[in-house]
């Protein structure tokens, strides 16, 4: 495809091809400073939904090595989101080299903090904030758990900030790290934030998980101890490839659940959430 870009995100190389120039230009600007893989593991294609849709009311169908037949097309103006969804889709459907957890990950002192939660629980915002305040950002979407040694590998793609989080992060990071504001997407207003330079430079450094938190935004502050059975079930639901991996997936997840302390945390504002995370890290992980 004429418009294309190769991107290394953590241990995974992507190539993104597009029928239009604009999505690739936006991607290139957002991902400035990311290495370029020579050989891409996954191919993402942004194609016209039908041939006519290249020119008339352009709409992007997300395709690639792995494709969901019923995925809704996106407007050309949301090309960055389409590329992000395309990359996520390849990971969710095709990645088998690690146990894939739908979780944000951060590193400090050589150890990893995992934040797992359903969409809207605030893990992206929390991870982005911690990434500006003394933690190495390892990713806001997927944590990749090594099947043999259990370490978490980073997947530090640009943070996908939604709605209110955009303003929160605008106070934290310089404007040149932000992508364009994407309004009226299926997920509301979205703006991407490129992680700090250290997160990109150290993207290939894994870290053993030391604390597992399940944050929930909008409740009064609370910390709840979770039994290992509950943690296990929550993480099977948070994993896109646990079933497909079979026994190695079970072994990796069991090791994680047995070896890493876990808590569910409720929080009502980000400031107290950060204080809570820091306290739990001191008590349980440091």
């Amino acid at each position: 495809m004429r418009h294309n870009l190769a991107l290394q995100v953590g241990d995974v190389g992507f190539r993104v091809g597009s029928a239009w120039r604009a999505p690739i230009a936006a991607l290139r600007a957002l991902y400035a400073g990311y290495p370029e893989p020579a050989i891409a593991e996954f191919t993402v294609r942004l194609e016209p939904e039908r041939p006519l849709r290249r020119w008339v009311r352009p709409s992007i169908a997300i395709a690639g090595d792995y494709t969901l037949p019923e995925a809704a097309p996106l407007a050309l103006a949301h090309g960055l989101l389409a590329a992000e969804m395309g990359m996520n889709l390849q990971m969710a459907l095709g990645h088998r080299r690690h146990l894939l957890l739908h979780a944000a990950a951060l590193e400090r002192d050589g150890k990893a903090l995992l934040l797992s939660g359903v969409s809207g629980a605030g893990k992206s915002t929390l991870a982005a904030l911690l990434g500006e305040r003394g933690w190495r950002f390892m990713g806001d979407e997927f944590a990749l758990i090594d099947l043999t040694d259990g370490r978490a590998h980073a997947f530090p793609r640009a943070v996908s900030l939604k709605n209110e989080s955009v303003a929160v992060m605008a106070r934290e990071a310089k404007p040149d790290r932000f992508g364009p504001e994407l309004r009226n997407t299926p997920k509301g207003t979205i703006r991407h934030l490129r992680p700090r330079g250290d997160a990109i430079a150290r993207m290939r450094e894994p870290a053993p998980p030391a604390l597992l938190l399940f944050p929930r935004f909008g409740e009064t502050e609370a910390v709840r101890l979770l039994g290992s059975a509950e943690v296990f079930v929550r993480l099977t639901q948070a994993s896109t490839n646990y079933v497909a991996l079979g026994e190695p997936g079970f072994a990796a997840l069991s090791r994680l659940v047995r070896g890493v302390p876990a808590r569910a945390i409720d929080y009502s504002d980000t400031k107290s959430a950060i204080a809570l995370v820091e306290r739990l890290w001191r008590e349980l992980a440091a």
Binding site: L245, G246, P248
Partner: peptide, 22 residues
């Protein structure tokens, strides 16, 4: 093989073995 290719192929073999078992 080049390292990224070897990683991909090792995962593809593991995935095929899992499909065989299933």
């Amino acid at each position: 093989l080049p390292e990224p290719v070897e990683n991909i192929m090792a995962a593809a073999r593991a995935s095929a073995e899992q499909q065989r078992l299933r």
